[in-house]
Simulated assay, not measured.
Amino acid sequence: MVYRIIGEGAMVLHMAFLVYVIIGGYLAWRWPPMFWPHLACALYALGITVIGWDCPLTHVENWGREQAGQAGLPPEGFIEHYLTGVIYPAEHLLTAQLLVALSVAVSWAGALYLQRRRKTAENRA
């Protein structure tokens, strides 16, 4: 039972990480210091996508599921198993990746704009 919880917990953390990468930059609009943790997460996600770095959560989920007697993730990994073909069609993986990148870019541009606007308002006061 404990191993199954570990596997399921890793899956939930994995999903939370992906959601944070997609929308976390918008938190910096309200709380500017949140930009830095989002930058780290977004860069790591980019490394996983572009360079092929391993995600430790994949290893934890596989280990927990295998110890619980369940099948681990396929070699393609978390995104291929849970999202590709489920949330979006497999042939639109690149489109999904580009939309995530666009969301990150828009959130960062908005955070920069709001930061500059705050500084301008401070200088006027």
Rank of each mutant, 00 (worst) to 15 (best):
M1T: 07
Y3T: 07
I5A: 12
G7L: 03
M11P: 00
M11C: 10
H14K: 07
A16K: 04
L18D: 04
Y20A: 02
V21I: 05
I22F: 07
I23F: 03
G24N: 01
G24P: 01
G25I: 00
L27T: 04
W29H: 00
W31E: 11
P32M: 09
P33K: 03
F35L: 10
W36I: 00
W36Y: 03
W36Q: 05
W36K: 05
H38T: 04
H38W: 14
L39R: 00
L39Y: 01
A40N: 08
A40H: 09
A42F: 02
A42R: 03
A42M: 05
Y44M: 13
A45N: 05
G47T: 06
I48H: 06
I48K: 06
T49R: 07
I51D: 01
I51T: 12
W53V: 12
W53K: 05
L57D: 00
H59W: 13
V60G: 02
E61L: 02
N62T: 03
N62V: 00
W63H: 04
E66G: 05
E66W: 11
E66R: 15
A68H: 03
A68W: 00
A68N: 03
G69R: 06
Q70V: 07
P74S: 08
P75K: 09
E76V: 11
E76A: 12
F78P: 04
F78G: 00
H81E: 04
H81D: 07
Y82E: 01
Y82W: 11
T84Y: 07
T84N: 14
V86D: 05
V86F: 06
Y88F: 15
P89L: 04
E91W: 15
E91H: 15
H92Q: 15
H92N: 15
L94C: 08
T95S: 12
T95P: 10
Q97N: 15
Q97L: 13
Q97F: 07
L98E: 14
L99H: 06
V100G: 02
A101M: 09
A101G: 09
A101E: 04
L102H: 08
S103R: 00
S103Q: 08
V104S: 04
A105D: 12
V106L: 14
A109Q: 13
L112K: 12
Y113D: 10
Q115W: 13
Q115D: 11
Q115C: 12
R118Q: 12
K119G: 10
A121W: 11
E122R: 11
N123L: 13
A125V: 11
A125T: 12
